Computed example of a mutant assay.
Amino acid sequence: MIDWLFDFLYPPRCPGCGQAVHASGEWCRDCYEAVAEIREITGCPGRFVQHVWTLSHYDKGMKQLLHDVKFNKKKERSRGAAPFLHSFYYATATWQWLPDYVIPIPVSEKKRELRGYNQVDILFKPYMSRFRQRDLGKWHWLEALVKVDSTRPMWGLTKRERQLNTKGAFLPIAAVKRSHILNGKSVLLLDDIYTTGATVSEAAEVLAAMGADSVNVLTLASGR
C-alpha cells in the first residue's frame, strides 16, 4: 500500500535517463545495460580480503544515483539498487561459498547526523533478508564496526593518501567483540563504491582481529 501510494504521488522514473518506468527503482533497459556488470575485481587490497565483487560501473545513471543518495539527501533513490541486487541474488544460487554475516561499512556519527542515515544500510539492507530466507543460517545482517570521525573526505585523494586516511578509521563495536560471534565465521563486507580498496582493507583487518575466518567484499559500483 505504501509503495503504491509513493509511486502514485511520485511517478517512477528511470534513475539513468528520467523516462517513465513501471515501478520505483526500475531502470530502462538501455540505462541498466550501460552500467550493469557483476564482476570480480582483481588485486585484492591488503591481506585480509579474499575477493571483491562489484555490481556496476560507477558511471552515468549509477554515478548520479549514488551522488544523490550520499550528498543530496534523496534517500528514495536508493531503490535504484534493487535490479542490481536481484541479479546478484540469482548469481549466488550456484556459489559454493556463502557468508554467515553481512556487515556494512559504517559512516561517522557526524556524517550520519548530516545525512540522516548510512547510505550503505539503505542500499543493501532491504534485500539481505531475502537472501537469508533462501539460505537459512546465512546472510545475517550485523552492525560490527564504528567509524572514527577524524578522517578526511576520500574524494580527490591519491591512493597513498587514501591508505593513510583510513588507517585506524574503524573500531569494533565493543559488544560484538566481546560476544566472539565472528569467531571462525565468513563475512561479506558491504560498501557503496570501490575505488582503491583502502576503506575495505582497513575494515577487513579489524574484522579479522575480531575472529572472522574470511572476509569478502561486495560493492554496488566501482570505477575500476
Rank of each mutant, 00 (worst) to 15 (best):
F48I: 02
H67W: 12
Q133K: 06
R224P: 15
E161C: 01
S87K: 08
R77L: 00
R152M: 14
Q19R: 14
R79D: 04
E76T: 07
A20G: 05
T195K: 00
C31A: 10
V120L: 03
L5G: 11
P45R: 10
A209F: 00
Y89W: 13
K147V: 09
S87P: 05
K110Q: 12
L123I: 12
D7P: 02
G168W: 05
N72I: 14
A174P: 08
L9H: 00
I173R: 14
S150C: 04
S214T: 14
T94K: 00
W27D: 08
V146P: 12
S186T: 11
Y194N: 04
G223N: 15
Y194P: 05
D135S: 09
W95C: 11
A208G: 13
R224Q: 14
C28M: 04
G184V: 09
V107G: 07
Q163M: 05
A198Q: 06
Q96K: 13
A20K: 00
T92S: 09
D30H: 13
E76M: 06
L98Q: 13
L188K: 00
C28I: 08
V21S: 09
P153V: 02
L220P: 07
D149Q: 12
A20V: 14
A23N: 03
I105Y: 11
C31Q: 09
A93V: 07
P104W: 14
S186Y: 01
A81Q: 05
V187E: 05
K167E: 06
L145P: 05
A198G: 10
I38E: 10
V217P: 07
D59F: 15
V52T: 10
P11E: 02
V120K: 02
E143P: 04
R224V: 15
A91Y: 00
N183A: 10
A34V: 13
T196C: 08
T199I: 03
T42K: 07
C28H: 00
C17H: 06
D149P: 11
S222D: 06
S24C: 01
R112P: 13
Y127M: 04
S24W: 08
R130M: 10
R79H: 07
C44K: 00
Y90K: 01
T92M: 12
F88N: 00
K110D: 15
G80H: 06
E33P: 13
R112E: 14
C31I: 12
L142V: 04
M62R: 05
Q96A: 14
L218K: 06
N118P: 03
K110C: 12
I41N: 02
Q163L: 08
S56D: 12
M128F: 03
A91S: 07
A208K: 13
I181M: 02
